[in-house]
Design a protein around this nucleic acid. Sequence first.
DNA 1: ATGAAAGCGCTAACAA
DNA 2: TTGTTAGCGCTTTCAT
Lengths: 336, 336
Amino acid sequence: MKQVTIRALARELNLSVSTISKALRDSYEISAETKQRVLALAATLNYKPNPYASSLRGKKSRTIGVVVPEVADSFFSLAINGIESVMKAMGYHVLICLTHEQFDNEQLILNEFQSGRVDGVLMSVSRETLNGDHIRSLTEQDVPVVFFDRVLEEVQAPRIVTNDFESGYAATAHLIEKGCREIVYLGISKSLSISNRRMEGYRQALADHRLKCTENNIVACTNDPAENYRAVKKILLRKAPKPDGIVASVEKLTTTVYQACNDLRLQIPRDVKVVCFSNLEIATILHPSLTTITQPAFEMGRAAASLLLKAIKGTDVKGAEMVIPSVLIPRGSTAG
Amino acid sequence: MKQVTIRALARELNLSVSTISKALRDSYEISAETKQRVLALAATLNYKPNPYASSLRGKKSRTIGVVVPEVADSFFSLAINGIESVMKAMGYHVLICLTHEQFDNEQLILNEFQSGRVDGVLMSVSRETLNGDHIRSLTEQDVPVVFFDRVLEEVQAPRIVTNDFESGYAATAHLIEKGCREIVYLGISKSLSISNRRMEGYRQALADHRLKCTENNIVACTNDPAENYRAVKKILLRKAPKPDGIVASVEKLTTTVYQACNDLRLQIPRDVKVVCFSNLEIATILHPSLTTITQPAFEMGRAAASLLLKAIKGTDVKGAEMVIPSVLIPRGSTAG
DNA sequence: ATGAAAGCGCTAACAA
DNA sequence: TTGTTAGCGCTTTCAT
């Protein structure tokens, strides 16, 4: 990497490095003519300022970290698009780090972020995360952290979330309305607050409709598709009471549920109706098309990014919370 | 950001900064005892080396850039997983940049990469990319570039690709075998080499089976789903000759094709059979399940990452090319 | 309007 | 074995 440095420009124009630097940053101290000359030479020599030198000097990296469980997931990939749209406009870089739903990866990543590599962090915690010390040590070093979607309640940090309770409620009420009486809830993890909030909504809807809520109807899924498949199959095979509705709290479970129903010769929506928290565009062409709770992934990404930028600028956003609602889109899987 | 620096450690232990630096890097020059003391203090004070300072000093960032059209796409998100798995193991960071299929974004990104921000670049070109000057100026600055999947033929750079020609051939031959005689090819873009190679395979398969290939059966899709939908619908409505098979060369078109067939009351596979280049896990639960050409996305990511690391190390990989084959998975959409 | 010089945190050649 | 020193490229006082 043979860089064109400010020094090279200075030598070429018989000016000092500081003059060049100021000219490039359009300082009022520099004459219009000099600015022209500098800019022109910079263009012809294809000068690119070394970002690491400025970072070192200025103590800011113009880079943010995005910590997510997975990128092969329509919610997160859309959220990343939203984040990126804001950050690009503000000249920030986005360092995406994946935890693969593992707490130790998450810890390692946040740890590394204490080095000054990033000016702020957007994160959605892993399904395993119970303790927030790694997050707190980051904020204690004045690296602002904003949660989006998956929050760790224990940590006091600004957050962009969706209305998980209401969505869980809406999904369940919708199934009840369509005649379901024995509704199964498939959670992502026992510890994840979004999963629990959705579940609380589910419970509340059952209660409001005078349906009893048995723990047997609640399944905590794992990160292993095969295991989830067995669990879903098992509960669908139960005879008395036979499940007639499913609320799946995460996109990954869509395939599992459809496949299980298919293999068990259960017809959706006749034998069992399904609502899934999902952002899959493809929901419309499933057979039957899938009723979804669709989250405002892109908007959440945008909002989280904007909030983080404020925090980086030094605005006090402690305790800021923004709720962007999800939408229930009824389709074939709950028809009839 | 209040950093613990090497200087702080030095003061605390009454040692010089260079001793600390060497101790941290486990230099043979430093006594075991001193190393212990340094490491211990570093741990208690939670010292994190400033990556930008080392980058500036060492002229290497231990960061690579990944330039892709989109992240909300199962091929690219899986490929990113593959890349990340290798890079994490080697202690590299991954800066993901999205072109959104636009050439000027791609240019801007590669331009910025001339600043020394990254040690190397992995890229899949945008559908608009015709000219490779931006890529060449990067390699001329000794920033190695490795293509994966979407190559710009014009640029001589190492590449990890899949067998696009053979896959296009296999998809088409499969349809012919299943009785199709009027097969439509849906391309991603006229300029994209992968799309063209797949198309060449399609043409060859037709020729080998003594079917004529009319330009009317070849549709170049755009980045606008609505427009694609109209185009697909239009060709499916054609009466004579009526299309009875579709090869869709990109995942995004799956929804379009299924939706169009659905809306036109065309039954898959009875009226028209479909093969799609796709990595969607969900292919199995579409109705009918989708016959796919499944690309080795994760493996391609891994291979590309390894190759880039070699290039960064200075190994000569000019002209290296690795082909990882895709697999045709026959499912319901081509049954019967 | 321009320049000299210090320093961001780290590394490495050289000295002691 | 440890320390001194000179930068990496850039920004920013503080002169001039």
